[in-house]
Structures are given as C-alpha cells and as structure tokens.
Design a protein around this nucleic acid. Structure first.
Lengths: 224, 224
DNA sequence: ACCCCCATGATACGCCTGTACCATAATGGT
DNA sequence: ACCATTATGGTACAGGCGTATCATGGGGGT
C-alpha cells in the first residue's frame, strides 16, 4: 500500500472542523465545503474519508457521544470509592448541564440534531430517544436502591423522570443564555436537597471552568 | 382600488401553509416554494404578501405566539372566578406541555426556531429569551404572593426556575416521543403536590385531546 | 368610459448544495 | 525497477434556494 496516511487522525481533524463550524455558526452551516475549509483540507478529502454527508454527521454524533460518556465516567471516578447516593446522582446530572466549553458544544450540537430528528425519519434512527429512555430507567433503578435516603413518600420512577426533565430544562436554559451555569447548579442542588433530605451537598463539587454564559463558546476540537 | 383582496385572509392562508409544512417536514423544509405550494398559491404571492423569508418567518412566529397566549388566557378563564394558587400555576404550566395538536405544532416550531436562534444572531433578536425570562419573573412574583401555601422552606424564585425548567424538560420529552402527554402531566402534578402541600389537584383538570405521542401530529392551520 | 394601479402569473439570475468524475503524485510489494 | 493502488486535487453537474424582473388582467375612482 503506497503513501499510507493515518486515517484516524485525518478523520479526527475533519470532525474537529465540523464541530468548530457547528459551534460557531450552527448545525445548518455545516456543509461539506465549510467543514473542509475549516479543517484545512479539500472538499474531496471530506468525501474520501466520510463518503457522504449523512455518514459524516453520524460520525460526528458518535464522537460527541463517546466524549460525553468519557466525561461522565471521569466525573464518577473523581468521586472516589463508595460515593453517597446524592453524590452519584449529582455527578450524573452535572453532565447534563452545559457548564464548560466541550459540554456546551456537545449540548448545542446534540440539541440541534435532536430537534432535526423530530421530523427527519432517518436521523431519528439515531439514539435520540433510546439513550435518554435508558438513562431514565437506570436512574430509576438507582433511586429505588437508595429509596431509604429519599424524602418520605417519594416515588423513584417519578423522581427519575422529574430529575431528568429538570436537568434538561436547566441545560437548555443555560444554552440559551437565560441562566448561568452557576444558577443552574444552584437550582439542581436545591432540588437534590429536597430529594435527599439530610444528605448535604458535597463540599467542592463544582467543576472548573464555570463562566458566564456566552454565545459562541470554546471548541473542544482536537484529538480522539 | 381595483380588485381588492383580503390581505389578512391571504396572509393567514399562507401562514397556514407554512405551519403545515413545518409540522410535517420540519422547519428546515420551510422554503418560499414549499409554503406557496402547500398554501395553494404561487411563489410570487408569498413574496407579495411577506416581502422576503425573514419577514415571513417572523410573521409565523408572531402568529404562533399570539395563538399560544390566547390558549393560555382561555385556560385561565376556564378556571372560573377566584381560582386557587395551585390551579393558577397549573394552568400556566399546562400550556408549556405539547398535549394536543396546536400546542404540539407550536412547541415544535418554537423549539426549532429557538435552537436556530442559538447561533443565528438576527433570529435571536426575537423574544426567545426575553419571553421566558419575563415568565419566570411573573411566576416568581405569583409564588411570592402565595408563599404561605408553599411547602415550608421553599424559595419562590428558585421554585419558579425549577417549575419552568421542569415544564420545559417535560415538554421536549413529550415532543420527542419519550413521554406521553398523560405521563408528563402526572409528573407535573406530582411536583405541584409537593410544592403546594395540602392543596389537592383540581378534579377534571385535563384538557381534551390527550393522545399517545406520535410524530407528525395534527395541524392547527386555519384562521387568526 | 377611461385609466391607473392592485393583485397576480411566469420566469430568469446567481449562488450554494451534495455528489460524481477525471487526473495524478507518491509509495509499498514484488 | 516496475506497477498497482492509495491518497489527494480540481472541477463539473443537476437541483434547490431566495430574490428580482417583466408582463397583464380586471375592477374602482373620476
């Protein structure tokens, strides 16, 4: 095989361009040409490495999903061994808030795609509803396991639904600039205070990089 | 003036076409030509009555906003004189749930536009954040007035934020088919039960037309 | 009865989109 | 050393988009 290039690196470079365009100009501005220009490659290369636009978008969403899962795992690992129920639930939901650059990018692109999927049938094949549904089931199971720490009369399944709806609502509030990441976290802690009475909020729980919500936030871009 | 046509009716007809296209195929499928075809008029007429696409979209959003406010006012009026605090808050938030056809249409188009406005600067001039911000302030004020009915230790401002975030999260859950309108209403009632302890849910509060969530719901279409 | 102007039709223009096609340097296996 | 194959560039094509332009029928004010 002659002149063999690093396909993974090339693909990452192109996807980085895509995400930068999406973050800056919105998902509708993501075209083959704009991605190529932003990534510093020719249009032909985007075709070569991703065949067509649908596959390109799918790869981008897959990458975002993987990054998000990784951040979530990091957050859980950072809790140390045997974290309390509230800390675990808090870590889970903190990832649902677009607090820093990469997270904001993820939520922007993901939300845009989910909205498109509402009417686009083949995009809907993506896990836009399966993912959240599974998350809600898992959360309900976790709450059921910890039910003796919950407020009296609380129903784990409904509490799981309430938590996820709240987190999502807060997330879009932050995304639209209606709410700062800090205030969203406050509301979330307020909610957890009432869900887990007697369990205080962990001390320095806040992640770094909480800034005033601004448009056109930082890009994550590089490397897989 | 020769051959004078009813501009208002023509504009309503065209906007009806736009909303039908948006509901069926998504906001990205709304073009001058598709709207004209759906409304049964020529492309030129859409130009004639709305000048350009930006103004057309603005008119559509204005109409949706007006319709939504009207439904909200109806819901409040249907409560009869001197409604309890919980009934009033419930009526306010019920409108945030896409339960029937027109409401679903509104939320679909509104959410799509709001997501576009995240990166499109001149669309952002629309009241996508001003509206919700005012709503939250009003709700906070109402809760402050009714603070003696609230759960002990509740903070009205935070409760207002929590309510709206929850309602929005539930709304998008319904929109995406993740949740049925009925289950969203249940979660909302569950929340209100805890916010207003001792105040029961009003009897036949449910609006007509609660159906299983499906894609491509009914259109509202006609009349201003 | 005239005529101006509102309301509408048809069509053209330039741009951007995704995709397809043709060419060609460079290089690893033989 | 050759040659087939990978990786890349350039460009063409058909279609859809928003917008602009030209044409014209038909009914009210005078």
């Amino acid at each position: 095989m002659p002149r063999t290039a690093d396909h993974d690196q090339r693909r990452a470079q192109i996807l980085g361009g895509l995400l930068r365009v999406a973050a800056r100009d919105g998902l509708h501005a993501v075209t083959m040409r704009s991605v190529a220009a932003e990534a510093g490659v020719s249009l032909r290369l985007v075709q070569y490495y991703f065949t067509n636009k649908a596959l390109l978008m799918r790869a981008a969403l897959d990458r975002l999903d993987a990054e998000s899962r990784a951040r979530w795992a990091d957050r859980l690992a950072a809790l140390g061994p045997a974290p309390g129920p509230r800390a675990r639930v808090g870590a889970l939901l903190a990832e649902a808030l677009p607090t820093d650059g990469p997270s904001r990018l993820f939520h922007l692109v993901w939300t845009s795609s989910a909205v498109l999927a509402l009417t686009d049938p083949d995009l809907a094949a993506q896990a836009f509803t399966a993912g959240p549904a599974r998350l809600e089931r898992d959360l309900a199971a976790a709450l059921t396991a910890d039910r003796d720490h919950l407020a009296p009369g609380a129903d784990p399944a409904t509490e799981a639904a309430r938590l996820l709806a709240l987190a999502h609502g807060l997330g879009t509030g932050v995304l639209s600039g209606l709410r700062t990441p800090a205030s969203a976290r406050e509301v979330l802690d307020y909610h957890l205070d009432r869900l887990f009475p007697g369990l205080p909020a962990p001390a320095t729980d806040a992640a770094p990089g909480d800034t005033e919500a601004t448009h056109g936030a930082g890009t994550s871009a590089e490397a897989t």
